[in-house]
Amino acid sequence: MSGAEPVETGPVEARPVAPFGARLAAAMDAHGPLCVGIDPHASLLHAWGLPDDVDGLREFSLRVVDALGGKVAAFKPQAAFFERHGSRGLAVLEEVVAAARAAGSGGTGTLTIVDAKRGDIGSTMGAYAEAFLADGSPLAGDALTVSPYLGFGSLQPAVELAAATGRGLFVLCLTSNKEGFEVQHARTGGPEGAPGGAAGGTVAALMAARAAVLNAGAEPMGSVGLVVGATIGDAVRATGTDLVAVNGPLLAPGVGAQGAGERELATTFGDARRNVLASSSRAVLGAGPGPDELVRAAHAAAREAQEALRS
């Protein structure tokens, strides 16, 4: 969207839609298993010759949507890079979600995962759910990333609203940052037969088990996915996490140029590779600002992910 023309960000009327998992599976089949992160780092804005302000943020983000909408399975705008510019930055995020929604209006168009990693309890979690998952909200894409570390049950308002509106969730499970180990690998000490396995099951296994219950019987896959880093080595095995049983999408940073090839993906995801959505940001965005260069980089990343995941 060169020139950054205004994008309508008003309320979106509710409409019947297929569940997120089914729509994502169709988009991945059509475009390959690639999600392009819209992460307007100051360094990327500078590389594109744009100022690190709201105008640069807007120009950068809408150019990405304009170039790649309808050509990749999903976008993933990272809310933090918009929030750092205050209320005007949030207004840009609303524009980006609206533009991405328009790009994804076809049956196998590009879906939008708002990467906000929200997590809280009670009415506060309910308010987050309404902000990012309710029909009519200008911040509502097709799915939202959430943090379960106040207990998976704390996500219930988001689980219920996502199901009611045909949207999806991606629950943090096994991440590649070294600090994640102390929480995600911790043993729950829960009672025998508790979700996640026997007493002493890991937190990561518990999160996967809860998602599996919500996705049970869904075809071709459920709408409650997990975030699982592609470069976590044998953490899936070490934590006893059953990714196949999840039967939902697995959002995976780190595929391809970011470090994980065929061998690493086989170790991490095993037979669950068919549900992996590879997330790439700088490997694609670094090819900009030209739209043709962005398209070539995205197609190359999608092919690379496809070859690694389907081998």
Rank of each mutant, 00 (worst) to 15 (best):
E5W: 05
P11F: 09
G21V: 11
L24T: 10
G37F: 06
I38F: 04
H46N: 12
G49M: 09
L50N: 06
D52S: 14
G56L: 10
L57S: 11
R58I: 13
K71N: 02
K76F: 02
E83N: 11
E83C: 04
L90A: 07
L93N: 07
V96D: 03
A103Y: 05
G104Q: 08
L111S: 06
G122N: 01
T124I: 08
M125N: 15
M125H: 13
S137V: 07
A140G: 12
L144G: 00
L144N: 02
Q156L: 08
P157D: 00
R167Q: 08
L169M: 11
V171R: 04
K178I: 13
G197R: 14
A204V: 12
M207N: 09
M207I: 15
A209L: 07
A212N: 05
L214Y: 04
G217C: 07
G217N: 10
G225F: 06
G225R: 05
G225W: 07
G229H: 09
R237Y: 02
L243I: 09
G254M: 01
E264H: 14
L265Y: 12
F269Y: 15
A272G: 07
R273Q: 12
V276S: 02
S280W: 01
S281F: 10
R282T: 12
G286Y: 10
G288A: 12
P289H: 07
G290S: 15
D292F: 00
L294E: 03
A298W: 08
E307F: 04
R310A: 15
